[in-house]
Write a protein that binds this DNA or RNA. Structure first.
Length: 670
DNA sequence: TCCACCCCTG
DNA sequence: CAGGGGTGGA
């Protein structure tokens, strides 16, 4: 395969090559034709080495003359026969030369330096021309009979020659300009000496012979070379042409084009040549387009291959190094470096990038023992917190990072959108904890009492509280371990207090045995029974009636919350039965009473005295009845439209609290 | 602003 | 029963 540069440049020099070739061919071909006119004028004694250059100069000069006569594309050219393309050209060539006042033709119209030439010399010239024509057998002889009277052999010869000349016409414009520039060189035809005509004629004959042979040789060589180039060009064009069009078809098309081009010299021919020229340009552009596409794709693929190879080798190195160093910072920096190398070349090849980065990134995650959430961005934060999918992993680990994570981790992870999918994939493959097995995302044991628990966020403690409280509610365990767990029920701001309590209990085992560090279901039952006496107990009352509880803000709040919940249920029931009474059509409030047989009492007793092993005081029945009346009146008065309509009731009920019996103070009561 | 309480939700 | 947001009084 050729290198991309060469292949990329191929179409570009292809066209100039064709032009150059054709130009040269035309130059030679023109020389071959124009020499007929040159032969008709006396030539100086050229050295054999300079014959070609002189011929070229002459050719250019003659071509300028032809340009001036609008020969090439003249619409007034009468030649219209398809059989006389080249012959007409040749004949016209001679004709024009003969008619041109500036031409060096032998018709007697001399050049600028030949005004003084005598008729005698002209007669000599005519004879020499005749001789030359006979000797050369030039197509110029056809000027006398360029019509259909040409012989078959000469026509075949012309056809062969014509076929070779057809394509040479295209770039003639270029040759024009070049010829125009070169044509400004002064001609050498004025050096003719009138006194040595005979000798010159003799020399001319000899030179003409040699030149004729040389020109024939040159022509043969040129024809060979040009035919070869022509076919090569067609084949090359077919190679880069539209897919589906075979070389044969292309070649046929080209030949057809050539035939059409040379079929006639008419006005249509001019347009046709333009069209053909456009076609050729389109083909060239198409070829260029196709070639550019191919080369670009190939160059990109090759570049990707090289980068991939480099990255692969670098990734291997990095893998080994990561195993050696196990430093995330180092890996990150190296990864970023590799990525910067990749950035320019792998944008079009995400697979390559993925393949190149994926192993290392996975390894990075696997080797990373701990990642601080604040140091992570979207991807890694997801990574670290993704195990939160499992309920237990919601526990955010609070550990000291063993390694300082460089800032490059931010860029690295932020600019790698495929990490998420990688992580997900890895999680799907190996589970959430395999990759992060080193990560202490989860505490080894929730019951573990470790210094870490102090630093655990409140969610963790709350979760533990739920677990332990439920555990305790089903299996009361007044051990120190249970006490610690109950301490964790404290709010975050009392966490340290709980810790102090814990440490104090640990320092005084006796106290820990006699003083409940937390509220137990027995305390809850006692609180419910106390609710029959007081709905709004003060903190002092609570502390008084829960002597076995080491009070703190946590315990107090919990107890207060308990009574709040008791009231809630109580008022809900009161409102419910009050509305039910209204619905039942009770109009007299005296008919609304609360007895031990009433449904309301049973509901309340079921809630606060489920075991029904406690004799509810009559005072509670009275307070309940008063509360029911309050709700009944308020609802009857449509006060419930006020959002805070219950507050008035609360104010009333809170005044109905009674003293809790003294026997509730002793822990032995339960 | 703090705190106790209410209210809602689970 | 607990948690949490909202609210009003001190």
């Amino acid at each position: 395969m050729a290198t991309p540069q060469l292949r990329l440049m191929h179409p570009l020099p292809c066209t100039p090559t064709v032009h150059l070739t054709v130009s040269a061919g035309h130059r030679l071909d023109s020389t071959y034709q124009r020499n007929r006119a040159m032969y008709e004028e006396p030539l100086p004694s050229y050295s054999s080495g300079s014959i070609i250059s002189q011929l070229l100069r002459k050719t250019i000069h003659n071509k300028r003359a032809l340009d001036e006569s609008h020969f090439y594309l003249s619409s007034s050219t009468p030649a219209d026969s398809s059989q006389e393309d080249q012959s007409s050209v040749s004949s016209k060539d001679s004709m024009v030369e003969a008619q041109s006042p500036n031409s060096h033709a032998s018709t007697g119209a001399s050049a600028e330096g030949e005004h003084h030439v005598t008729d005698h010399l002209q007669a000599k010239r005519a004879r020499v021309e005749n001789i030359i024509r006979v000797m050369v057998g030039s197509p110029n002889s056809r000027q006398h009979g360029h019509s259909d009277t040409d012989t078959r052999d000469t026509r075949e010869a012309r056809e062969a020659f014509r076929e070779n000349k057809r394509k040479q016409r295209l770039p003639q414009y270029q040759d024009h300009s070049a010829g125009g520039l070169l044509g400004k060189t002064p001609g050498c035809c004025n050096s003719e000496n009138c006194n040595t005509k005979h000798e010159e004629c003799h020399k001319l004959k000899e030179q003409l012979h040699s030149m004729q042979r040389l020109l024939h040789q040159l022509q043969e060589k040129f024809l060979q070379v040009y035919n070869q180039e022509d076919r090569d060009e067609i084949e090359v064009a077919a190679e880069h042409d539209i897919p589906g069009e075979s070389t044969e078809v292309q070649y046929v098309h080209s030949q057809d084009d050539f035939r059409k081009k040379n079929s006639r010299m008419s006005t249509e021919y001019k347009d046709q040549r333009k069209v053909v020229s456009c076609v050729v340009h389109q083909r060239e552009s198409q070829s260029l387009q196709e070639t550019l596409k191919q080369e670009l794709s190939k160059a990109v693929s090759e570049c990707v291959d090289r980068v991939f190879k480099k990255v692969s080798s670098a990734g291997l190195d990095l893998s080994s190094q990561s195993h050696m160093s196990s430093s995330p910072e180092m890996q990150l920096s190296m990864s970023a470096d590799s990525r910067s190398k990749l950035a320019s070349s792998t944008q079009e090849q995400p697979q390559a990038e993925e393949a190149a980065v994926k192993p290392r990134s996975l390894e990075y995650y696997e080797n990373s023992e701990a990642q601080s959430p604040q140091d992570q961005t979207e991807a890694l934060s997801l990574v670290v917190r993704k195990p939160a999918v499992t309920p237990l992993s919601s526990v955010t680990p609070t550990v000291t990072r063993p390694y300082p994570v460089h800032q490059t981790s931010f860029q690295f992870n932020y600019s790698t959108p495929l990490h998420d999918s990688q992580i997900l994939e890895h999680l799907l493959k190996y589970g959430p904890h395999s990759s992060f097995g080193g990560l202490p995302c989860m505490p080894p044991s929730l019951d573990r009492t470790s210094p870490d628990s102090v630093d655990l966020p409140w969610d963790t403690i709350a979760m533990r509280s739920k677990v332990t409280s439920s555990h305790l509610s089903h299996h009361p365990c007044p051990s120190s371990l249970g006490a610690v767990m109950v301490d964790n029920l404290c709010l975050p701001h009392v966490k340290i207090e709980c810790g102090e309590l814990q440490s104090m209990a640990e320092r005084n085992p006796y106290m820990s045995l006699n003083i409940q560090e937390g509220l137990t279901p027995s305390h809850l039952k006692k609180a419910k029974l106390m609710f029959f006496y007081t709905r709004y107990p003060s903190s002092n009352v609570l502390k008084t009636f829960f002597p076995d509880v080491k009070f703190n803000r946590c315990i107090t709040s919990q107890l207060i919350k308990w009574f709040s919940n008791f009231r809630e249920f109580y008022y809900i029931q009161m409102e419910k039965y009050a509305r039910q009474a209204i619905v039942d059509g009770i109009r007299d409030i005296t008919d609304l009473t609360v007895s031990r047989d009433s449904e309301l009492f049973r509901a309340l007793n079921m809630h606060y005295n489920k075991a029904n092993d406690f004799h509810v005081p009559d005072r509670f029945l009275e307070v309940a009845e008063i509360t029911l009346h309050e709700f009944y009146n308020a609802i009857s008065a449509a006060k419930d439209s006020d959002p805070s309509w219950k507050k008035a009731i609360y104010k009333v009920i809170c005044k109905l609290d009674n003293d809790v019996p003294e026997e509730f103070k002793t822990s032995s009561y339960l």
